[in-house]
Nucleic acid binder design. Structure first.
Lengths: 227, 227, 227, 227
DNA sequence: TATGAATGAGGCTTCATTCAT
DNA sequence: AATGAATGAAGCCTCATTCAT
């Protein structure tokens, strides 16, 4: 797209290299941090502006208002997670292994995307009002479902999976513990201690839920990790 | 445009003569609605006061400040859920049935306590800072763990449960989908449709997750609901 | 900022006698000046606040927002003019003299109420949107019409007035030059000089329009002032 | 919420290639609409630019600043009305008919020039500050006065008009109801109903005021329209 | 115990305008 | 001649909270 000549990167704003995309990206990055940290009403436009390399005025220039910025942030984190998921390739694995890998990868992906988690929580607090306006988000979420559908159909065709195995339900299930594991860490810890969130326990738990999912849909699967 | 704000309004309904406890309870009830609906920063003391049968000043009189009110609300919903859980009696059921019942009851309890769900989400947005201050909440949450421990130990003693069956992990697991099922309904629907939240599907899903939990910890359990 | 220190001197807000009505009246007075001077969008809430004896916050406390304040101002000046008109008593005068007096009094009343004139102009710029919301203004304006109706009916009954004499049309007519004489002084002067607005000319013009109105509705009236 | 502001928009329609005069005319046309609609402070340069076929920068390029644009608009509408008046030819009519025609034509011209009316109102709100700076406007307004002077002198010479008949006063008078009839329509309607602004009533009123003006200055004129 | 009045700080947003190309 | 990017100042309004009675 640009591939143009060399731009003397002086790092200072003395060279004045107008780069709107960089400005927008910078704003979005900071805004993601802030909205994730404090929510829509809790975040502060002044604070966001101060942490960017540009001014408050530019936020309004590019994003219209606080809600516009929030929407952009929301779409950004959804797109990010999809990217992570898209990179996962399980089409070549046999169904059982593919499913196990999907579960564990989803678990890890959520653990590594706290911003996404928090912003989705926040968006749910707002009843999904802003997500519903998005035109790109619904499309983004097709890919993970398609992967699960592929695995399920292959599993059934090979006589390995139960007939009731269902991609949407599996996604709901896998998401639930993957999400909850991050989203409710604070209150869960306050109530039951931090033990379950130690590195070792997380690894164990991940194995167990993967095993559990397999036990649910794979005929005759024995969930050895629970022994 | 609406001219509301904190402009003097008409007289309150004065059916409450002088019953501090009733006044506090009324404030708490309204505040629970508002905090659950809009979050800590999103809720508005003026609005809360207006919906109350008393005045703004009383909120400060009884609860100190906004955070004090929020903490009281938080403890209130935790206590409520505990009450619901305490009423559940599974000590007389055989382990497998007891566990199945616990799963399904927890699933239902969450579905019926949206205020609790939302306030826990909100508290997690705040990193559990206010819950951690609470002295009563940690105690409240012992009961559900104790129930699970009882079931697990009985199940193992009878040779029915795998040795790995663990009360805390089971609680984490059962909570995860029970919670997620309500907390993320808005965004999940926006992405994948509302199908899974229909009455029929909720019933099916509930059966399946219960079966799945059993399959994980009960030796030789076949998850028939997935066929 | 204000150079306060201790001010035992009266005349200032040192006595602290809470008087909401006085505060509201003070705000309204200043706001009337400002809105009359600069219009709805041109007036400045900060400036208004500064000129009052209270704070900006109180403006919002009592009037909700800028538009609420503007509406209150608008109703205020309408009420003021009505008061002035109500004081005029022509019921005892014979019809011709009564009408002449009404015309001249209206002419004078407008000349003495520049705030009213300007605010009505401003309201017309806003297409009467705010006036239309008022519940009291329509009632206020009945009185002048009733006075004219009384004079007209008496004039006709006595065979002095033409049958076409009509209160509403007369009010429209009398208002038109009374209003225009003040409202368009600036542009009229810029185009045609200030001559017509001199004290002497105003007096002459007032006599002539009064005579002219009489000539229109009084049978056989000779407009001598035009000689 | 709308996210408009001055965010970059889609491409303009580029049918205008390079015609400075056309660009200026286009800007003026839009600006006239906007200033007439919202006043000097109420109008918005961004909005004007957006509705234009060119960009915001061009407005500054051609008109300097907001006030410069406003002045240009003001001169434009004054010139427009003069054009309309200049087209009226009454030199060949006998004085009485000429005057009647002038009154009715002025009445109609105002009714058909709402932008002019509104901008003159706005300019009066600003105390005529910008009009006074204009060098061309004073000249424009000579023509209507000259026409009236011609009619008056002919009327007096023929012994038809009273000696007091005065062009400037007549212009003030004729303008007053012609102007008020449009300028105050909104508030007058809000107070007294829209009846007087119906097509039929406007026609009647126009006849009556014309007759009334004649009755004032024409010796022995009987204002039959008032019967 | 209860309340209407009052408040300072700071929130979001908009504006006319200029810069660099 | 023309433009997208950028900006500082200021605008309106809301908030949680306290005061005086």
């Amino acid at each position: 797209m640009d591939g143009s000549g060399d731009r003397p990167k002086s790092k200072r704003k003395s060279s004045w290299k107008k780069d709107p995309e960089a400005v927008k990206a910078n704003i979005l990055e900071i805004a993601t941090e802030e909205f994730a940290a404090y929510g829509l009403s809790g975040a502060n436009i002044n604070e966001i502006a101060q942490k960017t390399s540009t001014s408050k005025r530019m936020i309004y220039y590019y994003f219209g208002d606080k809600e516009g910025l929030y929407c952009a942030v929301l779409e950004g984190v959804y797109a990010s997670l999809r990217n992570a998921e898209d990179k996962l390739e399980v089409g070549n694995l046999p169904p059982v292994e593919a499913l196990r890998r999907l579960v564990k990868a989803t678990f890890d992906a959520h653990a590594k995307a706290p911003h996404f988690i928090r912003l989705v929580m926040i968006e749910n607090i707002h009843n999904g009002d802003y997500l519903r306006k998005s035109e790109i988000v619904p499309k983004l979420n097709r890919s993970i479902i398609e992967k699960l559908e592929d695995v399920c159909s292959r599993g059934k065709k090979e006589g390995l999976f139960r007939e009731g195995a269902n991609a949407l339900q599996l996604h709901w299930l896998i998401s639930s513990f993957s999400f909850y594991n991050v989203s409710n860490r604070a209150t869960f810890s306050a109530s039951f201690g931090t033990e379950i969130f130690s590195k070792a326990m997380q690894s164990l738990v991940k194995d167990r839920v993967a095993d559990m999912v397999l036990a649910a849909v794979v005929i005759g699967h024995e969930p050895r990790s629970w022994d």
